[in-house]
Amino acid sequence: MISERSGQPKLAGLSFGLLGPIKVWSRGEELEVGAPRQRGVLALLLLSEGRQVSIDEIVRALWGLDAPRSAVVTTRTYVSRLRRILTDDEAEIRSAGRGYQLIVDPRTVDLSVFRQTTSAVREARERRLVPEASRLSRDALALWRGPALDGLGGPFFEGRRTWLERLRATAMEDRWALDIEQGNCGEAIAELTLATAAEPYRERLWELLMWAFDRDGRQEDALSAYQRIARLLDDDLGLDPGPGLRRMYARIGTAAGASLA
């Protein structure tokens, strides 16, 4: 099983890691999973969540359009090797039609635990259990060990990595919002300042930064942040701030007695 608190496997059975380099642990000890394409087979089967994956799908994911004639035989070799690694009763790679499916307990896969925990965060927020939601949010993010599917290349895995990183970004935004709701504005301001510098066109980050400044009693800094992102969007992209930013500016500006020119 995966521990939500630490992002590390508990000392029982097999555990699988997709949120970082591809990893397999057996009772807390890391197993050698093989070369990158062999790890890619394991990642694809885990991402499929028990669905049958055809050999053709696996070949396309591993080699794209440039698959060698030996790709099918090589894929079967990778599966055979993975079967020898995954000898625990908790995991089984089954032959299914002209393909395979991996049967595992979702609680042993860090991605499944992450998605389940972020769902619990939303439920806790809906019930206004902010401290509980905040704890769960930090638990979910602690599962990440680096970029998702790290070490796997090619269009298929790049696309899945982009999707997973978006899930992570949303979870980070939720965590900052929860910090601000609880009045933990100092840490949120420091992290959001770095985040807006790294991704200057993500308006949600600026909106959260403005909110954190406002909750911290720094209304002038909040309004200044709005002016910075408005100028950046106009100069670089020819765009106006979106509705979320405008609403935040209007609310803070009205409360501060600012003129909304």
Results as ranks from 00 to 15, higher is better:
residue 57 E to A: 14
residue 57 E to W: 09
residue 57 E to N: 09
residue 57 E to S: 11
residue 57 E to M: 10
residue 57 E to K: 10
residue 58 I to A: 06
residue 58 I to C: 05
residue 59 V to W: 00
residue 59 V to G: 02
residue 59 V to R: 03
residue 60 R to A: 15
residue 60 R to Q: 15
residue 60 R to V: 14
residue 61 A to Q: 10
residue 61 A to N: 09
residue 61 A to G: 12
residue 62 L to C: 09
residue 62 L to F: 07
residue 62 L to E: 05
residue 63 W to H: 11
residue 63 W to N: 06
residue 63 W to R: 05
residue 64 G to C: 14
residue 64 G to Y: 14
residue 65 L to R: 13
residue 66 D to L: 07
residue 67 A to N: 06
residue 67 A to P: 09
residue 68 P to E: 12
residue 69 R to S: 15
residue 69 R to Q: 15
residue 69 R to Y: 15
residue 70 S to T: 15
residue 70 S to K: 13
residue 70 S to G: 11
residue 71 A to S: 15
residue 71 A to N: 12
residue 71 A to C: 13
residue 72 V to Y: 10
residue 72 V to K: 11
residue 72 V to I: 10
residue 72 V to H: 10
residue 73 V to W: 10
residue 74 T to F: 01
residue 74 T to S: 07
residue 75 T to G: 06
residue 76 R to V: 08
residue 76 R to A: 09
residue 77 T to D: 09
residue 77 T to H: 06
residue 78 Y to T: 02
residue 78 Y to L: 02
residue 78 Y to P: 02
residue 78 Y to Q: 00
residue 78 Y to S: 04
residue 80 S to K: 06
residue 80 S to P: 00
residue 81 R to L: 05
residue 82 L to W: 04
residue 82 L to P: 02
residue 84 R to M: 05
residue 85 I to N: 00
residue 85 I to P: 00
residue 85 I to V: 12
residue 85 I to L: 08
residue 86 L to Y: 04
residue 87 T to F: 01
residue 87 T to I: 02
residue 87 T to N: 01
residue 87 T to Q: 03
residue 87 T to W: 02
residue 87 T to Y: 03
